[in-house]
Structure formats: C-alpha cells, structure tokens
Design a protein around this nucleic acid. Sequence first.
DNA 1: GAAGATGTTTTGAAATTCAAAGTGTTGATT
DNA 2: AATCAACACTTTGAATTTCAAAACATCTTC
Lengths: 152, 152
Amino acid sequence: MEKLYGTLNELLVKLFNDILQIEEQSLKNDKFNDLSITEIHVIEAIGLNAERNMSSVARDLDITIGTLTIAINNLVRKGYVNRTRSEEDRRIVLISLTDKGKEAYNHHLQFHEEMIKTTISKLTPEEMEVLVSALENITGYFKEKYNLMKKV
Amino acid sequence: MEKLYGTLNELLVKLFNDILQIEEQSLKNDKFNDLSITEIHVIEAIGLNAERNMSSVARDLDITIGTLTIAINNLVRKGYVNRTRSEEDRRIVLISLTDKGKEAYNHHLQFHEEMIKTTISKLTPEEMEVLVSALENITGYFKEKYNLMKKV
DNA sequence: GAAGATGTTTTGAAATTCAAAGTGTTGATT
DNA sequence: AATCAACACTTTGAATTTCAAAACATCTTC
C-alpha cells in the first residue's frame, strides 16, 4: 500500500510536468506554431459550436474577462477567432472560431487523441471501465474540494 | 468505444486543470502564501539535500539559468533560500534551502500526500492497479515522445 | 599571461495575468 | 422620458514569468 502510494504520487507529478512540456514542444514544430499554449486553451474553450459571449468563456477558463479580451485581440489579429457584437444586446460580444481556428482546434484534439489511444490500447475493456470510473471519482473529489476553497 | 474515448479525454483534461487550480488556490489560504507556484517548484527542485549549483537546478526545472537567477533573487529576499559562492571555484553559486525553505518544502509535500491519500481512499484495489498502469502508460508515452522532440 | 571556456548575472523585450477604472448599453423606477 | 443602477466588455497600469543575448567574473590551457 505504501509503495502504491509513492508510485501514484510520482506518476502524477511526472505526468504533470511532462504534459506541459510536451504540449509546448509539440506546438513549436507545428503547423500552427504562431499559437501559444494559452491561446490553444482559449480556442479549446470557445469550441466548435455556436457563438459564445466573453463572460462564459472566461468562466470556463477561470480567467478574468479583461485577460480574455487581450487573448481574443491577438487571436482575432492572427485570424483564428471572429468577434462580433450581438444585435439583440449590443453589450454582448460574440466570439467563435474561424475556419482556421476550427482547423487548429481539430489539430490539437488529435494530439490528445494520440495520447489517449496509447493509454487505452494497453487496457482490456474491463480495465478501461475501471479507469474511467476511477478518474470520475478523482475529478469529482477535486471539483468538490475546489469549490469549497473558492467559497472561503 | 468512441464514447469511452471522448470520456477519457475529457476526464484527463479536467483532472489536469483541476489539479493546477487546486494547487494554486491552496497556496493562497496557506501559511506560506507569499510563494507562487513557480517558486514552490523551485523550492522542490532545490530539495532538502546538499547545496546545488544554479545550472543543475535550472536543468531540472527546464528553465534558463537567467530565469532561475531572478527566481532565486526573490526567494533569497523572502528568506527561503541561501546563496553562497563556492570556495573551490568562485564562479559557482551554491543554493540551498533555509530552515524556512525546508518547512515550505515539507508543507507542500503534505499537500501532495493528502491529495493522493484521498484519491486512494476512493478507489478499490482493482481500480488502483488499473489507474497506476494507465498512468504509467501515459508517462511512458510522453517520455518517449518528449525525448524524440528534444533531439529534433 | 593571453585566449578561450565556464558559470552566473544583467538587460531588454515579450507574454500572461489581475484589479480597478472607464465605456457603452440595457432595464427598471419613477 | 429621464435618470440610475446593473451589466458586458475594454482599457490601463502593474506584477510575474520567461527567454535570448550581452556582460561579467573566474578558471583552465597553451
């Protein structure tokens, strides 16, 4: 049990550093190498579906709207994001991905998919289900803990 | 199968973001709340053992020495790190944790331990094993991929 | 002892972030 | 209809983090 414990700790810490670094590295040798990790995350948060307003995207990313404004300025300039004002309520700014933005979105998705594919290719169907429920447990716990902390 | 795939992707991404945010939040309500995450990482990298020079710590953290110099300036100012010059080779700068630095190191370790302990407590032994082997797969994949990229 | 190598610091610039002030729009109240 | 508060967003000013390249100090080698 103690051993498992150290293993898990090490794995999580290592996983963390690795993912960040690889994501960064892989961006550099990439078709979309004018995008930073931050910008990729914004593109991810906007998503492929309908137009979204600034506030909801900022909330998803856990950043302030002011910070998002700056990020969107750059993404619009680089041609990844459309920005328009809502006709119904002219306070609201609607953002969505351009075709180029959607391409970048899908490209990044593939990075993730490759990672997952490698992971699950070594698991049996039963193990896969176990993994999913284990991760659901963990993220559930984290979500709870995070919300508690936020309220304090 | 496709569905599991998306689920797993989502779970891992979420887990990742959650851990980062919780770490950040927990620092704020903390005894050592004058430390940023970056600074905690530097303290972790210096470690409890012998004095280390700038280059080796920078290499461990995958940052430039110049960047580390600035981080160490602040940590010295805040009383977490000792900085001396080697007597044998006066080019070399030796850094180590002060008592306060060691306290912060252990405190952060406890945060990790608690996180892992809670995680483990929510899992059955079977889930544990699957989780560990899945994470091993992922980090293995990353390690390989990362080394490849670095060489390019 | 000069030249080059090594280890670190400094400098200048860019990216990311926040809090707070500012701008424009809408909705409610009177 | 006029005003005022609430809302959605942008701008501003400052802090942090980071890097590359120049500068500095010290060692090693020829």
